[in-house]
Amino acid sequence: MTDPSVYGTPAPPGGDPPILEVSHVSKTLGGRLILDDVSLSLWKGQLKVLIGPSGGGKSTLLKCIHFLTIPDGGDVFLQGQSAREMGQRNICAFRQEIGMIFQDFNLFDHLTARENVAIALRKVKRVPRDKARARAMEELDKVGLADKADLYPAQLSGGQKQRVSIARAMAMEPKLMLLDEPTSALDPQLISEVLSVIADLARGGMTMLMVTHQIGFARHLTSEIIFMEDGRVVEQGPPGVLLDEGAASRTSFFCSHLTELTGR
């Protein structure tokens, strides 16, 4: 997990269009401007880390990218395809291409681990039952949970639940994964098992945008840190630049205090 380099491709390969382009997204909720003209791009195989103080709009941004929350202004492009132009009917197809990992897992409580992974294959992709089962087992195996396939969420630990939710998202073969603080609901000793699965995904070339306060992890795996505050992207750049000792950045200030506060 602490192996640096490979997936930390610093700059986008010249000329290629980004997989994800967030273009001037803004959102007002409850009368407050939560996202203020946010733009960012992700190229294939990149992992970018989104950090910033609580209430800064990180979760809202991920939901807007997924169009789970419809932005008031701006648009999101997945491989050049505008989410806004998909319309209400086709937005499900758009969402299918983007995996989402939630802080509190959001597994389906009435289904076993295997059924959790298989259900979207069956109901969304119309994969036949047997194939969906087999596919689900493959994905569970990749996150090291093949032996827990028949257990229900209530019988799994937090780390295991999060790994099932990663398997569930990956089974849909998304072009992009959004991760919203995937480890912050976990006991400290369970964090590393989830981070190592995420590192595996990164090594496998998965494109990811991840909200996390695991700065150590971020520093080693990411090509770029995006710092958000009050609904705006305040800074973005490689961790080496933003987090350097003595870098006079908002990000390094925030992160040094984060370390003090959490000891991580």
Binding site: C92, N106, L107, F108
Partner: peptide, 24 residues
């Protein structure tokens, strides 16, 4: 009484609203 995130999770996987309701 159900955990509200399950509906969102279903939508995020590409379920339609109706499918999320009937399936999850």
């Amino acid at each position: 009484s159900l955990h509200p995130g399950q509906y969102q999770a279903a939508l995020s996987l590409g379920f339609s609203r109706t499918a999320a309701l009937t399936g999850v």
